[in-house]
Design a protein around this nucleic acid. Structure first.
Lengths: 233, 233
DNA sequence: CCATGATGTGACCAGGTGGTCATACTATTC
DNA sequence: GAATAGTATGACCACCTGGTCACATCATGG
């Protein structure tokens, strides 16, 4: 994504170009607050304490700057899931229960938000904005949940009998994706007021919520398995 | 909300001010496509085939125009739920099963989108935009699902035993809201690719999906009630 | 047919946008 | 110290935004 210059000189100081980092830091803040379109290059420049011309020496234009940052985001995501994968291997429950895995994905998401709240905010903004330059391309590189992740998982679940087989995989994934996605959104911001106030609660209550949501996904909203009759709603 | 003028003259023709309607129609299109911020008054004026000054004679500014349209939307919503309420009274299942009611809400949402897709699009845009002028105030007037609607319903469900009591009402509402909301989003647009292609499918398949999603919400993702052990995920 | 007041019009405004470029500066080399 | 190349700067550009206003047009009442 554009060759950030000034990396050929190496005057011993500023190896990874401290100026570029200042720009990126300011840009991340601005994009997280405003989304792509509303973010102002002037503001970024001002907040970075830098001249406009300098910015455009490092990043050809707004789109390039944004893509650079978003690619950082996808890198951080990949790093995170890799770490989480290793953590799982270390534990005993590699490839264990379907819902344990789902829970782990959700917890990984929470951990990511805790670590990089601004980057996650940018991701959300892209998700909701319509005209980010290379939106589809960028999003396809992350896709935290969704088909690619839950697809195989759900398939295995259905095969092993952990997941009911009388409901198409599509629907399974849809419900999972909708719930988890919304949960993370609620966690990351105080989303359209339905957030249950997640962001404020302590660690324990949060885990409680996670467990209860998973229990509902698992067993449904009706208590224990005394349904079976009247399957057509 | 600003007194749209030209309603005092009444030259027999254009009773509800045909010009105003032209403006509103163009504005609805534009806001539905672009959301509040990105929508351009110039475009609206152009598409309405009208001079800029004229627009500003009917609506003091962009905010007023938008609020006028959004209030139309809330009116349409209220009309729709009222009609749906009457339809329910007519049928036999007034105040019946919790999930039947949830299903009805969802179907009402689908019907609304079919009737007024552009207005629903505007609603979605407001939901996802951050800096719409009187966002909170406007949204609070609709709130299709969410606490106010599902709160009492869920409470009754828990009391009657239709809904499990070992999960807080908050969580019940959260899962319901997340799933239904996302479903309507998927229906209204081809939402971030997880849409199961709802918009394209026929009526029957759509109802099928609805039923299956409700079944999952009801009974959970694991087949029939053979869980009970290992409640802590 | 004119006078009056409401409506319609588009050139115009200030302000903000992303982006440019001649210039100034600074570090390196000879 | 002079020459050279890399970097920093901010005034400036064209463009677009929401909004205004002096003027033209029109329908009406006398």
């Amino acid at each position: 994504m554009d060759i950030p210059p000034a990396l050929t000189r190496n005057t011993f100081s500023n190896l990874p170009s401290e100026k570029q980092e200042k720009i990126v830091a300011a840009a991340v803040r601005e994009f997280a607050r405003q989304g792509y379109r509303k973010a102002s290059m002037n503001t970024i420049v001002r907040e970075a304490g830098i001249a406009k011309g300098s910015l455009y020496q490092y990043f050809r234009n707004k789109e390039v700057l944004f893509c650079f940052i978003f690619e950082r985001f996808t890198l951080l995501v990949k790093k995170s899931v890799a770490e989480q994968g290793r953590a799982l291997e270390a534990g005993t429950d590699a490839g264990s229960d379907f819902f344990v895995q789902v829970r782990n994905v959700l917890l990984a998401g929470i951990a990511f938000i805790d670590l990089y709240p601004e980057y996650f905010q940018i991701y959300l903004k892209v998700l909701f904005e319509q005209d980010v330059p290379r939106r589809e391309e960028l999003l396809s590189q992350v896709r935290l949940f969704s088909r690619e992740y839950f697809g195989p998982l759900g398939q295995l679940g259905q095969k092993s009998g952990a997941i009911r087989r009388d409901v198409p995989l599509d629907v399974v994934i849809f419900v999972l994706d909708a719930t988890l996605d919304r949960f993370l959104q609620s966690y990351a911001q105080s989303y359209p007021d339905c957030g249950m106030g997640l962001a404020k609660t302590g660690r324990n209550e949060l885990l409680d919520r996670v467990n209860m949501i998973l229990r509902v996904l698992r067993e449904g909203l009706t208590g224990s398995g005394l349904h079976a009759i009247n399957h057509d709603v």
